[in-house]
């Protein structure tokens, strides 16, 4: 490896020695990628919180303007085929986007951390059993796994969030187990055992805090992936159902008007792209700062 290549890998070491949240944030947002991504994410979060204040119209109200009108001053993103204000629908859709990412990742992290810690901590047959199961889940292409789970649970946004989370938990389980294997050999874990701490206590208080970095990194990269998968599932009719302003679902009806009203496709499509890009930029930087070992994942 060239010297230039290893230089960024040294940064996290520095970031770690100066413990605390503030230096970490400083290291993170000193990078342009993170500034850019963070700004977009901030806008998204604000839009989601203040949706009723920001949107000029009710996102479900029909005929607030002409039908399929391209962007104008009254309707900055134009109107859809039923005369609804697209800007208001996008603003309200941001709530669903955040919800999808958060819940899917929470499901994946919850299950992945549980399986990973238990497998790594106990080892032996427990480890073998849990990891073989994880391997089999990994043998399915991610999207197919999510699709199969939606097939079992039935279509709908809630089920899609669960399916996307279940579909991505094996990755978390693998990474967590790997980290636990090193952490459990640490002296403070042995000390905990000697002092008579119960295994759940050791796992929660001694091991979990020390495997958090890779979890956070993976979660930040999984978030945009979850948003993309859920939007795709909505697009093929399995996720959010109309009249939901979920961004993927917005494209379903819009396809019909690709000739006459391309803005109906491009506005929600670009919204998904920009938000996913922003989360990816943020996640990438987070990975560089927190955990360089995951660089090649």
């Amino acid at each position: 490896m060239s010297a230039a290549l290893t230089a960024p890998a040294l940064l996290p070491a520095r970031a770690k020695t100066r413990t605390g949240f503030r230096p970490f944030l400083a290291a993170l947002f000193s990078r342009r990628q993170a500034q850019l991504g963070g700004a977009v994410v901030l806008v998204l979060v604000l839009a989601a919180i203040f949706a009723p204040l920001i949107s000029p119209y009710d996102p479900f109200e029909l005929r607030v303007g002409p039908l399929k009108e391209p962007p104008t001053r009254a309707h900055p993103f134009g109107t859809d085929d039923l005369g609804r204000d697209l800007f208001s629908r996008i603003v309200y859709g941001s709530r669903i986007t955040l919800q999808i990412g958060t819940i899917s990742v929470a499901v994946a992290v919850g299950l992945g951390v549980l399986v990973g810690i238990v497998a790594g901590f106990y080892g032996g047959w427990v480890d073998a059993l849990l990891m073989r199961f994880t391997d089999v889940m990994l043998a399915f292409p991610g999207f197919l796994l999510a699709l199969a789970i939606v097939a079992i649970l039935g279509p709908g946004l809630n089920n899609v969030m669960i399916a996307v989370g279940l579909g991505s938990f094996p990755g978390f389980a693998r990474v967590v187990r790997g980290s636990v294997l090193t952490v459990r050999e640490m002296e403070y874990v042995t000390a905990g055992r000697v002092l008579g701490a119960t295994p759940p206590h050791i796992m929660r208080r001694a091991i979990l805090p020390n495997v958090l970095a890779p979890i956070i990194v993976l979660a930040s990269l999984e978030f945009p992936a979850a948003v993309l998968t859920a939007a795709a599932l909505s697009f093929i009719g399995l996720g959010a159902q109309p009249p939901s302003p979920e961004w993927g679902a917005l494209l379903v009806d819009a396809r019909t008007y690709i000739r006459t009203a391309p803005h109906l496709i491009n506005v929600p499509g670009a919204a998904i792209f920009v938000v996913v890009l922003a989360f990816n930029l943020l996640g990438n930087t987070l990975r560089d700062v927190l955990d360089p070992r995951l660089r090649h994942r």
């Binding site: 939007a231 795709a232 494209l251 396809r255 496709i265 499509g269 998904i272 990816n280 930029l281």
Partner: peptide, 18 residues
Amino acid sequence: AMAGLSMPGFWFGLVMIY
């Protein structure tokens, strides 16, 4: 590469068609 990673395939496809 970053753009490709973040691109929703269904939108990109529709843009190509358009």
